[in-house]
Computed example of a mutant assay.
Amino acid sequence: MAPPIHQSPSLVMASFTFLALLNACFCSNTKHPKLSTSTSNWLPAGATWYGSANGAGSDGGACGYGGTLEKPPFSSMVSAGGPSLFKSGKGCGACYQVKCTENAACSGDPVTVVITDECPGGPCLEKSAHFDMSGTAFGAMASSGRADELRNAGVMTVQYARVQCSYPGFDLAFRVDAGSNPYYFAVVIEYEEGDGDLAAVELMQASSSADSSPWLSMQQSWGAVWKLNSARQLQAPFSIRLTTLLSNRTIVADDVIPSTWLPGETYRSTTH
């Protein structure tokens, strides 16, 4: 699916990576919510698949993750979400377990997918929740050797549960928008450990450390792309603060963007 129209044309051509695990400073006492996948917590949803049978659904999609979907840790185990899952882009990065039982080819075992795209119409509006999964993820719900049979089933009813995101071996990182400059800074936020989705993103400049309110709110541009426009030249190094959508947990990566930052480059988080 093509990303929606947005304010910065350069964002269409650039991928930005913002990898988050535990190599960041957790600056609140809010703990991860206890997300269970016990039988009593499974909810019904619709499910379809798109793209190639063994692919990642799209080349990036409405969350702006670019060409990372087929690579670890996503490894094509991704899904577009209907409105209640995509949440106008705020649901990007959230993780779910999905399982099917109604078809003879279903294994009944859950698979974990990440919301990386939007499913805006058609069957995605027919149920309260809908997963338009990659061909790889949809086939993974099948018993051994029956993935193609399951993919031929059409629209199915599945069960799903929200779960914590886990990306072992991947540190918090930022890939800066190719169109960023001293007055405009943008990143895509990706692989946030735990909740996965984000309610707010803020930036702190080096020159703001002594201010009473040093954190500048970034705007959600589209999908998982967050941006900051400034009338004054932004002074790096930058720290980034995330607030998660599900549990209101805050995470700070101090001075993650160095004073020598360049558009299109990726910077990993500092730890302390």
Score class of each variant (00 low, 15 high):
R249P: 00
L35V: 04
Q7C: 02
R146Q: 15
P4Y: 00
S38V: 10
S134V: 00
D148N: 14
H272L: 14
G66M: 01
P182R: 12
Q97N: 12
C95V: 03
V188E: 05
F174M: 12
W226C: 06
H130K: 08
P263A: 07
L242I: 12
P4G: 10
A56K: 07
G93D: 07
S217D: 12
K31Y: 06
V158A: 11
V158S: 10
L35G: 11
A24W: 09
G46P: 02
D197I: 00
Q233S: 15
Q205I: 05
C63H: 07
A200E: 14
S15P: 05
M156E: 07
V187I: 15
S209V: 11
V12W: 00
Q97H: 11
N248F: 05
S40N: 13
L216W: 03
R146C: 02
T68A: 15
Y50C: 09
S180A: 15
D254E: 13
A178M: 06
V252Y: 08
D171C: 07
A178C: 11
G60I: 01
G121Y: 09
F174E: 02
E102H: 07
A178P: 03
S239H: 10
Y191E: 14
S75E: 01
I189T: 14
P44S: 13
G67E: 05
T157P: 02
H272C: 15
A24S: 08
E193W: 14
